[in-house]
Nucleic acid binder design. Structure first.
Lengths: 206, 206
DNA sequence: GGTATATCGATTTTTATATATCGATATACA
DNA sequence: TGTATATCGATATATAAAAATCGATATACC
């Protein structure tokens, strides 16, 4: 159950284990072994066991892990039980799609506001979320204790938006613009470039 | 310029280098050194040099790499010059957003058709792309030489759609459903779980 | 033209990650 | 109740990736 010495690669596998467990037929597997998880996910069984031991308690020999306990351990380790508020900047095509996306709730996240720099969209509502002027971001984040932000603006504005976010107290940023963002070490930035990712896997096709 | 011995981590950095180079002020940097790229992107200079040498020719001492040559080398290595056709299955919220997304063209990809299993949407058009019945996927892929597919359907249908794609000759799949897909070794599958990724980076906030 | 230097590529070292091995243990089953 | 075995956790080995080191070289500058 130690929280350190957990590799980044492992951290990325934990959500995979979790969704696999959640997708198991209800009640059919009260217990599950690292071996069978590994087989189902095409991973090494030792790796699975090691990963799980980093995040959860121990399994029992012969039977494995209690499925429900394992699920809630993972959820708790990944903090899916929290209810954190998120803001998004940029309400173009991608921004709208993310506002519309309903997958955040399951991981304990909730987009509560959107910001843009185009006066034409101020006050408009996308999927129940009002679009505000970017100038209000700092006061809004302060009032609502926002720590997490999503950047969905064109490349050239991304760094500027990032700076504003950091200045507003945000310390975790997911960036969809294909540019490298600079921020202090206390800020965690994750870049998502869907097109580039698709291009990478497509490299292999003849 | 050797094409082997290139690590996955490196492969993921190449698009970062490329977008950095493309975002440089026009004409201001005819040459650029690995050192300065590294500094700008917060990476080790040796790593940058090694990455670039894997994908491109050599730079010249004292001046570095010719910027334009470097850009086109990377584009060519990443095959951004190709014109590959892509299909998408699932035209719900996410599917529509992806159809609407305009970032694929820049990496040489082009979504030319969408499929769904809901008769209510057959024949409807999303952003100029007609939605077809899923049953037509095989013939369509055969006729159009499709090798790349995107899965944007609910979890429970993902594996079934994956099987259909493979059967249709598709060998590169980007999967947005949070489930592990099984396919032959010759099929390259990349899972994208935006919510889980955001949750991971949010773990750090207090 | 000569020299100092920034940059390169190659090699080595260190670190991180994944895999394999081994003894221990709790459960299933005779 | 006793034994065989699937599974566990821990340790050790192997592999992969990142970082450091070093000599070589082409360019800038004197």
């Amino acid at each position: 159950m130690q929280t350190r010495n957990i590799s980044n690669a492992c951290l990325n596998r934990l959500p995979v284990y979790l969704s696999f467990l959640k997708n198991l037929p209800k009640g059919e597997y009260p217990c599950i072994s690292a071996t069978s998880i590994a087989k189902a996910l095409d991973l090494g069984e030792v790796q699975v066991r090691k990963d799980l031991s980093a995040a959860c308690g121990s399994g029992r020999p012969k039977t494995g892990y209690d499925t429900d306990v394992l699920i809630s351990s993972l959820e708790s380790y990944l903090k899916y039980n929290r209810k954190d508020k998120v803001i998004i900047v940029g309400t173009g095509k991608l921004g709208k799609a993310l506002l519309d996306y309903d997958g955040f709730e399951a991981v304990g996240l909730n987009i509560i506001a959107a910001f843009d720099n185009d006066p034409a969209v101020y006050g408009r509502t996308e999927h129940g979320i009002a679009i505000k002027p970017i100038t209000q971001i700092k006061s809004f984040c302060a009032e609502n204790g926002i720590k997490i932000g999503i950047i969905a603006v064109p490349d050239i504005f991304a760094q500027e938006v990032c700076d504003r976010m950091v200045e507003s107290g945000i310390s975790a940023i997911m960036n969809f613009a294909p540019v490298h963002l600079r921020a202090g070490d206390n800020v965690c930035i994750k870049n998502e470039n869907i097109a580039a990712n698709l291009a990478l896997i497509s490299k292999s096709v003849n």
